[in-house]
Simulated scan of single mutants.
Amino acid sequence: MVEERAFNIFVYFDQGVARQYGARHHRLAGDDEAKLRHLRANIETDHAKAKRFDFGRTFTPEEWIAAQRFSEVTRYFEEAFSNYRAPRAVVYCMTPVVDGVPTFDEQVSTGPFRGDVVTQIEGRGSVPDYLVTYVRENTFHLAELLNDDYFKAIKLLFNAGHHVSSAKLLMSCVDTLAFVEHGDRRGNFTDWLDAYVDLAPIGITAVEVWEFRNSILHMTNLASRQVLAGKVSSISPYIGSAHTMPRLDPRLPKPFNLYRLMLAVGGGAGKWAQTYADTEKMLKFIERYDTTISDGRVARWQSTSSDPEIQL
């Protein structure tokens, strides 16, 4: 049987950051599964002997998982494969090495890391993976994902007359988009609004929307601490065809058209989604969006006779 090079690849995380990977090759014959068994059996001896190569960028563990979620990571190892003249259809086993110790949770294929496979429990189902649903023909349909995860429910509540609940979910949507864009830091909400949403025609500011968000989500009222302290104007949603409405009394909250705010945030989300054509930014999106939950990512367990029935 013809022998060919197969590789143990190691991603070295030192103090929480990977700057290098290592490659150790074996000349092996047989089918791919036999080669992989041999590679796995040699992980302990190979990781310290592997030739090291620099990554083109650094990775945290979360960023590396995002890279695996987005696509195959073979391209990051091209220098090593070229150095050893690897076959075109290269067989390799990749293992993280954390502070000198080979570490892994479970074995997965070398293709994109998909959550519906990892969460699968035989006979019970799995958690849907948004990348499976919204990546089609190498294109990530982010605007469609946002519509399904947020704007469908926002519009459903609005059209059913549940306007306060619709406003709450709209604020929660901005929270999520701001977190994905900027991380969990102070000012991310207003920074996202200022960058992507034109609030001027509605007659309100990003800071006023932020204080509205604080009061309506936490207490379902219109008086956040900053409003009570007189530092920010209180705003109040109204429903109607008028684009703007005058403030009838300076002691009352400033009115704004909730429907127009909903449209403005939706338009801003569309502009924001277009910025994720950049691959590096896409990796950060996956890293952060993977930590959120939605109606579309609820496990649909197959029931058994012992499962209790729940009725409301």
Rank of each mutant, 00 (worst) to 15 (best):
E4S: 11
E4G: 06
F7K: 07
Y12P: 09
Q15T: 10
G16S: 06
G16M: 04
A18P: 06
A18D: 12
A18I: 11
R19I: 10
Q20M: 12
R24H: 14
G30T: 06
D31L: 04
D31H: 09
K35M: 09
R37S: 08
A41I: 02
D46P: 03
A48F: 10
K49Y: 09
K49Q: 15
D54C: 12
P61V: 10
E62N: 08
E62Q: 13
E63I: 12
F70I: 03
Y76F: 15
S82W: 00
S82V: 01
N83Q: 03
P87A: 00
A89G: 03
M94A: 15
P96Y: 09
G100V: 11
G100N: 12
P102I: 03
T103K: 04
T103S: 13
E106V: 07
V108E: 03
G111W: 08
P112K: 03
R114G: 00
D116L: 07
V117F: 10
T119D: 07
I121Q: 14
V127A: 10
L131D: 13
Y134W: 12
V135S: 04
N138W: 02
T139C: 07
H141V: 00
E144R: 09
N147F: 10
D148V: 01
L156K: 06
L156F: 09
N159Q: 11
A160H: 07
H162C: 10
K168C: 14
K168M: 15
L169E: 03
L169F: 11
L170Q: 01
L170Y: 00
V174I: 13
D175Q: 01
F179T: 05
D184Q: 13
R186K: 12
G187C: 01
D191H: 10
W192G: 08
Y196F: 14
Y196H: 12
L199D: 09
G203P: 12
A206D: 12
E208V: 08
W210I: 01
S215T: 04
I216P: 04
I216K: 10
L222I: 07
L222Y: 12
A223Q: 08
R225G: 09
Q226G: 00
V227Y: 01
A229I: 06
G230I: 05
G230H: 09
I239A: 04
M245A: 05
L248K: 13
P250L: 11
P250G: 07
A264L: 02
A264Q: 02
G267K: 06
W272Q: 00
Q274L: 10
A277F: 01
D278K: 00
M282L: 14
F285A: 01
I286D: 01
D290F: 06
T291R: 14
I293Q: 08
D295P: 02
G296K: 04
R297M: 10
A299E: 09
D307M: 15
D307I: 14
E309T: 15
E309V: 15
I310A: 12
I310R: 13
L312T: 14
